[in-house]
Amino acid sequence: MSGIKVNTKINGDPVEFMCEPDETLLDVLRNRLNLTGAKEGCSTGDCGACSVTVDGRLTCSCLVLGAEAEGHNIGTIEGMAHGEELHPLQKKFIEHAALQCGVCTPGFLIAAKSLLDKNPDPTETEIRFGLAGNLCRCTGYDKIVRAVQDAAKDMRKSNSRKGA
C-alpha cells in the first residue's frame, strides 16, 4: 500500500505501522493495531473518549495524525494494568460503579492517571477540572470523582510505604 511508515513505541513496546497521511492516531490504534480501548466519540476533541498519552502528555488521539507518532511514546489504556493486576484507578472504578455503558471509561482512566501522576492529592475541584475534557452521559460524574479520590488515597498510601 501507499502510505507512511511510522516507528513508535506503544505502552513501552516498539511498534511499526503504515498509515495514510490523513489517518488519525485513533484510527491507527483501533483499525490497524487492534488496540480498541480508545473509543471514538465526537472526533473533534470534545469528549475525551479517545484519550491517550503522547510522551506522557494527555491528548485526544482523534486530534493527532498517525504520522505524527513517529519517534514518540504512546500510552493507551491497554498498558494501564500490569498483566492481570489492575491499576488502582481501574479497581476503584469497578468498586465505586463509576461506569455504566463504559464507552467513556478508558478515556477517564487515562485522564485520571495523568492527573494523579502530576498531582497525587487533588481537591475535588481539581479532579473535576482535570477531567473536564472527558464526557460521560451515564454516571453524572459523581461516582467517577469518588473513585478517583479513593484511588488517589490508596496510591498515596502505597507510595509512602514504598518511600519508607
Partner: peptide, 9 residues
C-alpha cells in the same frame, strides 16, 4: 483553551 487533552497540543 480547551481541556487538559487540548492543552497537551
Amino acid at each position: 483553551i480547551g481541556s487538559k487533552q487540548v492543552q497537551g497540543r
